[in-house]
Design a protein around this nucleic acid. Structure first.
Lengths: 209, 209
DNA sequence: GGCAAAGTTGCCGGACAGGCAAATATCGGC
DNA sequence: GCCGATATTTGCCTGTCCGGCAACTTTGCC
């Protein structure tokens, strides 16, 4: 089972992919999305332009890749919750567990204990720049598909049934709204609180009053 | 108020835009997205390649444009509902009113009374081809923003409050799920029924029975 | 050590993207 | 109906993107 998951080849590939993506984020934050050429990103990660293209099919995809990878983990996190937990409780816990990383900076970047400024700047860029929103939503769609599968397992439903699909889509939409709101608020509020709120609202039928 | 909305200039522009978008859809359905050059689309609509670029910044945007325009109308439709109607009733009615066009083919294409096969094939292409999904989601996001505004008006809330944003996002997600499901089902079911179901589920807190 | 599989790189041609300025069409007042 | 003001279309040009191909290098495994 560990066959192929931690050979030198695979580790190098993962490292290159992550290096490229971080380089893309850093340069895009620094010079604007259009102020960076793919060539610059490749150079900054120490590979050829052509190799960049073996990993990502566009600049936008490279920038959004970290987000895409992280979003995928929500489904895994949900699977890790105890099976007898009520669905919404489990979902909320899974989401919070995953997003805590963004808040306390204990992500893969490593050293800092405060929120990872580079990552926050990157997210800010992704949600605000129209050139990236498409790719961002694409990543979210992929994560939703994975989430729908995890939900289907948990609820003993077919993964193509409308129920799991709808719940996953609604959760995805809620996360986007919460993140958006979090970015917009000037005195920075707690993302965790916002997440709890939107999920709770979903569960109670989106009352408006 | 009608100033500028029906001059010859504006009508021609709208016509060109629509012609380009339909040409893009038709050719993409016929030859695949990658089998069409922007130049072909421009020629098919009788304008120069450069003019195409004045209207759309990419092939994908041109293909998704009709969907984008239609999705925008949901917000308008909601505004047209009586103000004392309950929110979810009004939303459901607005959505159905808009999507009925896709079902009975009474759209701008004109003559046929049966569902517009060209449009259905186009939608099928948009939801299935990865190259278009980004643009599609981008269009949905824009429509959601408009919808959030309309909801905010109706509920006497600020348009940037989290409530309207979340409802609009959830509705958008639900429409996507319903459409997806509709495409997937082999004996074609009623889209209207699916739409009713997903919206009803949203309103009742997404129970997983 | 040595062969097979996988990854990297350079090169190339076709397509896309958008700035600029000349030509053309529409508008609105007269 | 004519004319200047304004908006649109078009051609041209330059830089970038994108992916196929084949040579070369690295890693995996016997």
């Amino acid at each position: 089972m560990t066959r192929g998951t931690d050979g030198l080849r695979e580790r190098k590939k993962r490292a290159t992919r992550i290096a490229l993506s971080w380089a893309a984020i850093r340069l895009a934050v620094e010079h604007g999305v259009d102020g960076v050429r793919v060539e610059d990103i490749a150079e900054s990660a120490g590979v050829s332009l052509r190799t960049f293209r073996n990993y990502f099919s566009s600049k936008a995809e490279a920038i959004a890749a970290r987000h895409a990878d992280r979003a995928m983990l929500i489904a895994e996190e949900l699977r890790a919750r105890p099976a007898d937990e009520p669905l919404w409780t489990a979902i909320t816990a899974a989401v919070l567990a995953r997003f805590a990383v963004d808040l306390d900076g204990a992500g893969e970047r490593g050293t800092s204990t405060e929120p990872d400024q580079q990552w926050i700047a990157g997210v800010r860029l992704m949600v605000s720049d129209p050139a990236l929103q498409g790719e961002l939503q694409k990543a979210n769609a992929a994560a939703q598909a994975a989430l729908a599968e995890a939900i289907a397992e948990r609820t003993a439903t077919g993964p193509n049934e409308i129920g799991p699909q709808l719940v996953a889509a609604a959760v995805g939409a809620a996360l986007t709204v919460a993140t958006d709101q979090w970015m917009r608020t000037d005195p920075p509020t707690s993302l965790a609180a916002l997440l709890r709120e939107v999920l709770q609202r979903l569960e109670s039928g989106l009352p408006i009053p």
